[in-house]
Design a protein around this nucleic acid. Sequence first.
DNA 1: CGATGCTTTGAATCTCGTCAAGATGTGTGG
DNA 2: CCACACATCTTGACGAGATTCAAAGCATCG
Lengths: 236, 236
Amino acid sequence: MPRTLITHPTDLTGNGTHTREYVLFKELKADELDRLSSLSKIKILSEKQYLLSQYSPALQVFNIASGIALIERIASNGDRQVLAFIFPGDFVGLTQSEHFEYGVKCITEMQAYAFKRSEFTALTEAIPQLKKNVSDIGANVLARALDQVFILGQKKAEERLCFLFLQLLERLPGATPDYIHLPMTRQDIGDYLGLTVETVSRALAKLKKEGLISIPSPHILKIEDLDGVTDLGEVE
Amino acid sequence: MPRTLITHPTDLTGNGTHTREYVLFKELKADELDRLSSLSKIKILSEKQYLLSQYSPALQVFNIASGIALIERIASNGDRQVLAFIFPGDFVGLTQSEHFEYGVKCITEMQAYAFKRSEFTALTEAIPQLKKNVSDIGANVLARALDQVFILGQKKAEERLCFLFLQLLERLPGATPDYIHLPMTRQDIGDYLGLTVETVSRALAKLKKEGLISIPSPHILKIEDLDGVTDLGEVE
DNA sequence: CGATGCTTTGAATCTCGTCAAGATGTGTGG
DNA sequence: CCACACATCTTGACGAGATTCAAAGCATCG
């Protein structure tokens, strides 16, 4: 059982510049953090492993300590939609249903704090601030899902990519316009943005040709024209 | 001030077959309903009016008593995404932010109960069951948004239409496979499914030709092959 | 019954997907 | 450290699906 919980993702990354408003631990007092801590078990996973599996019983909830993952839904015909990328500090697994309707797959090695769902829910009742945080996180998740609906419904390939870049800038620890390490594959990106790998690759090439970005190596991205990228990718 | 609140949409439609699990009033006691009722003001709107406007201050929340509406988000360039259709019994307007990020536009004439957001939130704290209902509704809204992400990311025009048909069957009061009255325009459908009006029209024609549906008049839909429609439109 | 708005259909164009090949990276064992 | 194998990424040619622009058919409502 861990003695201390990491209370802020910046503690992990050493990056103090990111503002993370939707965090499980927000404004909790020391004793409340202790109670949370005492209920958590750390879980360590390597890349490509599943933190939780679609259709498995929803018995646990998780708070990501380190690493990057994605949330995916796979249909019976094999169609795969990536619903979100998740980052340190994110909270996943809370659902009203008995089983998870999605899987969470690690993109990198990962450390996460696991809570028994029942215990976590009980604690949520005992600590109003925690309950509020969970509800804020839920609202934030919804807001991002609606953004995704918007770009999938309205935008073209290049615009969708720019949308992703902006999200990464905001949420990926350590990301700056000069250097974004893309931990996910082109396939992951495609499945997130509703595109094929080939289209992702071509759209990247086009953005590069237009001088908006450069790609020193396949998983390193530099934004050359942030205003241009923002124009294409922003949701309103 | 209204004396009684309608406690279930079936009270309105006279249709007792629809199961509405995510309803604001669920399992509230008589005195709790009274308190809710005493805070509500009925609001009557005609078609094309806005129950609430994008970017306006989020001072009220609403429970739909009768009528049909849609939730839309309009970008500065005029792109419009319909985020959802809403029906009697639905609850809209609760957000964490100061302003609404979306508008709610009536498709038909509408009656809705309006609550001051502050008063509603206070009541939510006083009545745990009400708070639970609100949170269940939120979870349901998220689940539907994720379905929409999946559809927009993975499916073709005809499949998207079938997805809509199934949703209408489930949620539109009075809808049966033999007779679905489509209250929205082709434009609304297109903006919901990420398609143009023309594509909607053509996809409908194709589904008709394939014998899956028939369209006796532009706003009346009959599902001829429910299994076929289900195969195309279901989310997993 | 005529006017207006909505819906359908047609033709050209464009974007994206599919299939296929080649290039680049990554990881492994020698 | 190199060589090889496998996975990932890129690029090309082609085709399918969706959009655009334009015009014609239908509803609906005064």
